[in-house]
Amino acid sequence: MPLDTSAYSLALLRVDGRRWNELRRIHAQIRTQAAADGSSYLEMGHTKVMCVVTGPSEPGPRRGTAGAGAAGASKAVAEVAVSVVVAGFSSVDRKKRGRNDKRNLELQSTIANALAASLHTHLFPHSVIQVSLHVLSQDGSLLAALINAATLACVDAGIPMTDYVVACTAGSTSTYAAGDESADPLLDLNHQEEQELPGLTVATLGESDRVAVLVCESRVQVGRLEGMLAVGVDGCKQVREILDRVVRDKGKRMVLEGTVAKGEGLEDMDLD
């Protein structure tokens, strides 16, 4: 089903009625799984993912082959191990993706490397932080949703990190073949847009302009990169705001319920 982009130039509205710089609805929860060290559930539009973090913990002698265990245990820093499971019912064509699918492996290694750069892994020698992600429903921006969910779950697990790693996608309104220079950048692509338009996934470290992940899988003119990157980085800041609010709300609720001791305000600290 080809995407009808003709409407965009008339009303400046996208297929789902958003403007160029609008994110889809992001809904997130933390601590969804009581048994895990950290867990989260994240929706970006119709893309729904779930994340469970176990650790940092030292793998016992039972775990896996001796080679893999030894490799993790001998490190001076914690190893971040990510597994992504894509549910068969997550997309419209019920395609079975194997565990060793190359695309899947690439996703896993991208998320692991992005998290490892922000998490303070040097605090946990010999241990492994196991991040397991489950894709329940796909509607574009999958990598971005996975990165965001993994970050939230790591925050929930209380693993120290430099800042949130937040991600979103950005695209451009016309296909690469049309050499029109006036193409507008778009924020947060859904599945239809992702199929038809050039796009990239960008993840930044918190509110800074520092890019941890940049993945572009479609053909696009070099000139449009700057605009797309700028919109993507800006989107990441919005996403960070949303995720931060989720964590704060949860924290505040816990303080209100008295399950966590109240913090000491900065004001009274400055007094002495």
């Binding site: 690439e106 053909r219 070099v222 990157l229």
Partner: peptide
């Protein structure tokens, strides 16, 4: 022809966006 076919910065230490643009050029 100046068309990007693919970009892959798969994690690692974050790099300033401006640097990435310069690298592309």
């Amino acid at each position: 022809h100046g068309e990007i076919c693919q970009i892959a910065k798969l994690g690692g230490t974050p790099v300033e966006a401006v640097t990435l643009l310069q690298c592309t050029n």
